[in-house]
């Protein structure tokens, strides 16, 4: 099947702002469901730039393609049902999609660290925490058994696990959910990756634990000079840790901005509605949901994909043509034809 590019590619503004290449650059990424039928694009032409030592939030509802995007970057898509159909992923100037699987294995861990949503299923219940850490360490570094163990204890201390010497010999089921996520983070940073990808790292956790884990990720990103992508459906998480945000809807980026700009001056109606849907303790404002459900892959509307759920949509402007991503300023984009005439509500107005 032929894929027509959904948007005109504009050189990313952030590249020009930095002298060195960014940590990670994604250009024209198309991810599709493949199988018996013709490939069905789920992510359609996604551009993303992660500056060095930046924490980027990739926000979207379930089915928006944010998780697929983060998996595609680490080349962890299961190639049988989901594949990258087009585009490039460049890590410090090196195209990841052309690497062999063997080369990619050394990139994973050493250059890209991953944290997944569910710490319960991401750890092997049959092995101790120490064994899982040391086996990763010894695969990537030339370390003796004792040295690897010392490093494992050190890593557990770094991620805020009390009494790491005892914990290192425990099994995953012996520790709490929050602590398991800390172990997952220790695994992810064990080989000092330059880029950390955290896929919904706190969705399965309680409120107080969530705050602790986000704080930990932010601190580690700073001390280890990592560039970080956090995918989430919760803008509250973004407010907590992210420098910049890309909002995804139905396989596209609809708005990209610094966290402050996005929260105080949203430029896309979908972002506005996401902000209104947030519960806030002690603030007398009604939580508003977004009516309807996001379109499914293969049923994306012709024009603006958010139009059927948007309170601002008008015919024919919003439904007739494909809406391009408009570049407003370096690092600031929005995909809305009515943007100039709308005044959207941020959290402080």
């Amino acid at each position: 099947m032929e894929l027509t590019p959904v948007q005109v590619k504009v050189p990313s503004a952030i590249v020009t702002a930095h002298a060195r290449p960014p940590a990670l650059q994604v250009d024209g990424l198309v991810i599709g469901l493949v199988g018996r039928r013709a490939p069905m694009p789920v992510v359609t032409g996604l551009d993303l730039t992660l500056a060095r030592q930046e924490v980027l939030g990739l926000v979207g509802e379930s089915g928006s393609g944010k998780t697929l995007t983060s998996l595609a970057i680490a080349r962890l898509l299961d190639g049988r049902s989901v594949q990258v159909l087009a585009g490039t992923v460049t890590l410090f100037g090196r195209d990841l999609l052309t690497l062999s699987e063997a080369q990619m294995r050394s990139v994973r861990g050493k250059e890209i660290g991953m944290i997944f949503q569910d710490p319960m299923t991401s750890l092997d219940p049959a092995f101790t925490i120490g064994y899982q850490l040391t086996s990763v360490l010894r695969r990537h570094f030339d370390l003796s058994r004792q040295a690897a163990r010392r490093r494992a204890v050190e890593l557990l201390g770094m991620v805020g696990i009390g009494d790491p010497r005892r914990r290192v010999d425990q099994y995953p089921h012996q520790i709490s959910g929050g602590m398991r996520q800390r172990v997952m983070i220790a695994l992810a940073i064990s080989c000092e990756p330059k880029v950390l990808i955290a896929d919904e790292p706190t969705t399965a956790l309680d409120a107080t634990t969530q705050a602790q884990i986000l704080e930990l990720i932010k601190d580690l990103a700073q001390t280890l000079h990592m560039s970080t992508i956090i995918t989430t459906h919760d803008l509250g998480v973004v407010a907590e840790v992210c420098d910049t945000v890309a909002v995804m809807y139905a396989g596209q980026i609809v708005e990209q901005a610094t966290t402050e700009q996005l929260f105080y001056h949203p430029q896309h109606p979908y972002t506005e509605r996401l902000l209104l849907a947030l519960p806030r303790v002690g603030v007398e404002q009604e939580m508003l949901g977004i009516p309807g459900a996001p379109p499914r892959a293969g049923q994306f509307p012709e024009g603006c994909r958010f139009a059927p759920r948007c309170g601002h949509a008008v015919e024919p402007d919003c439904v007739a043509h494909v809406v391009p991503l408009e570049h407003l300023a370096p690092g600031r984009t929005a995909r809305c034809v009515r943007r100039p005439e709308l005044t959207l509500r941020g959290v402080r107005t």
């Binding site: 009604e286 508003l288 949901g289 009516p291 309807g292 459900a293 309170g311 709308l342 005044t343």
Partner: peptide, 17 residues
Amino acid sequence: MTLTYPDAAGPSVLPAA
């Protein structure tokens, strides 16, 4: 311009089930 919001709990559009 005034902003109007559709009823938050209004009936949702059912995808083809």
